[in-house]
Design a protein around this nucleic acid. Structure first.
Lengths: 205, 205, 205, 205
DNA sequence: CATGAATGAGATTTCATTCAT
DNA sequence: CATGAATGAAATCTCATTCAT
């Protein structure tokens, strides 16, 4: 019943292998098409082993969500020093391309799983990402104080961040997007920057 | 074996009841938690009847997707005459609020099902919505020709539409959004209008 | 999830068949040796059918216990009119032999299951049997008022009933009992009657 | 493969710890709820160690049964010199209370396990207890020859012993017994003694 | 000897689908 | 047409046992 905490290195590796297998399985079969046997087979372990480390299938999905979120957080943390030094336009482009690289890594694994975010309970951990992004924003504004004057700062940040995330993700998912990724990147940058400028202008009036 | 096309009124009603029940079931149990029995119980018919009208579960989901998309299309068609006469700012606000009303109707039924869009194969029909929106856009520009000059028109349209849809949907889904719906509506309007203005400006230079 | 209440005659029969099969399975394999597949096979239905009528294995065991207890209660109720008219000695003998007949019916089915009483949660329903026996006792004493004078009546009744039940059950279970059933019956009668006499004597002194 | 006989003290201690853990596990989870991991955890050893000392789970249960029976036999042997010198009435009371103390020791461990006697294969060793009790009886009658005249001596002994054992055990098991333990002890004594007297009387006639 | 990770056979349970009534 | 009992394939999960370290 109580799943043993992995003490040995061997078991830590097994846990990671299972989570990894979970991503591969969901990416190629969707949530409802993925079975514990699938995951076990891909991980190269027995079904029994799955249950040594995870109380049930749900917990594997949970671990996958945690793992993805951690990866994003690590990425954000690593980029922060560079981010705060950049101008907005190149900054946005850099972020969008980096985000794309993360999502399309390993045959779009994360990207495809993102479509099953609800069933994978990603939402449970999204709060952490939002907090991390807010933190970066704070640091950015410390370094570029003029943006502190932006009207409705929190609204502006909220909308910009959400627009960015979903446009990038959705574009990657679409099989035949009507515009290219590069076009979208430039468009998104333009949109957000002109939005910020507009709110800055409002503030000055 | 071949499921009969419902020609009589009684059958049509049953079919609609089942689709309705499908929405309720998925909204309260998710895709993986919804069984044919669930749907049958909610619809107040026997499981056998389900198969009288639908070849299998998949087809019920398919009909649900079709039904939702049809509703959106009807809404768009109905609004078109009003839309083309409006100025951008009130127009956006009107659209966002109308969209919200659609999604939150019947205890957020459509909104919640939207989270299971992938498993419900919504994507299959999304193209039709995009086409309808493009058509409205065309008509709008016939009536307001100055926007024909917008730089990268298709890119601008694509990004604006996507940003709108996802911001509205996500905001409604979030349990504790950091900003209010009204704030978001005004922000989104500002963002898109300043984006259009920016692209208009580019075009003129 | 929710097991359907059997409305049709057909399903009532199935339920009974499953309970019946449960007794046969436990009698021949013990609690831990009995599987749902076993029961389904013996009942001649599919595993799935088991779960149409019982939420889980536990519930089948529960239904078995209920069914056994009901049988005992029916037996007691049916015998009551005869019981109250008899003298103690032939009464006890009659009861012991009737009880034996019940337990050894159908290849000792009930008797063997009695050994798994704990796992079958019989205890949950034993209270009902005790109440029924007490009721009979009351009626008996209405008809034979001299026993009302017995010293410590409730203690005497408790010990007599328990001694009877366990001696009969255990004797039937033992593979090579040192004494015959007839000897035991006579001994038990003697013991209880002399016990009652002793308590009657105490009361008179 | 062949499990080694524990000759060293350390091994003997481990074996005892495991048997001890077996009792605790069964007492708190029942037979079907007890796993080898449970036992190992309680014993504070690894599952592997279990198999170092016991060929399989069955053997642990077997050792538990043996251990319980040995304890009873030791108790009987130790009490024999006192027993043979006592009069019947105080004797019975003494035995009942001593038996209770054994069963309720360590949070009712033995008592609870007694309910799983069938699955724990206690029966396999019960013969030894009966023999020991018969031996004590013999010695008692050597010392109190008048009881040698009892009619149907073996029947009387059999019924008395069984009535005693089951009444005591069952009373302890019952959550809300209708009579107190003391009342039962006195009642049981009265019953058996009057039974013996009755059989003595019969013999004299 | 001790460990506990790994196994896999087999148990329980679910549920889309069929079909006799 | 409607029903819902019955099905059984396939999923989830358990756990005694083994074996490399």
């Amino acid at each position: 019943m109580a799943t043993r905490k992995p003490r040995q290195t061997r078991s830590k590796v097994t846990v990671d292998t299972i989570i990894e297998a979970g991503f591969i399985a969901v990416a190629s079969n969707g949530t409802s098409g993925t079975t514990t046997r699938h995951i076990a087979d891909i991980a190269g372990v027995s079904v029994g082993s799955l249950y040594e480390y995870f109380k049930n299938k749900e917990e594997i999905y949970d671990a996958m969500a945690k793992s993805f979120v951690k990866e994003v957080l690590d990425m954000v943390k690593e980029l922060t020093p560079i981010i705060v030094e950049m101008e907005l336009e190149p900054l946005f482009e850099m972020i969008f391309y980096t985000f794309r690289d993360l999502l399309t890594r390993d045959n779009d694994r994360y990207l495809i799983c993102l479509q099953y975010a609800t069933e994978l309970k990603y939402e449970r951990y999204i709060g952490q990402i939002e907090m991390a992004l807010m933190e970066v924003l704070m640091k950015y504004m410390m370094r570029h104080p003029k943006y502190l004057k932006v009207n409705n700062l929190s609204v502006t940040a909220y909308i910009s961040i959400n627009s960015s995330i979903f446009n990038v993700a959705r574009h990657l998912i679409l099989p035949n997007p009507q515009i290219s990724f590069d076009e979208m990147v430039r468009g998104l940058s333009t949109m957000i920057i002109s939005y910020i400028d507009a709110e800055l202008a409002k503030a000055e009036s």
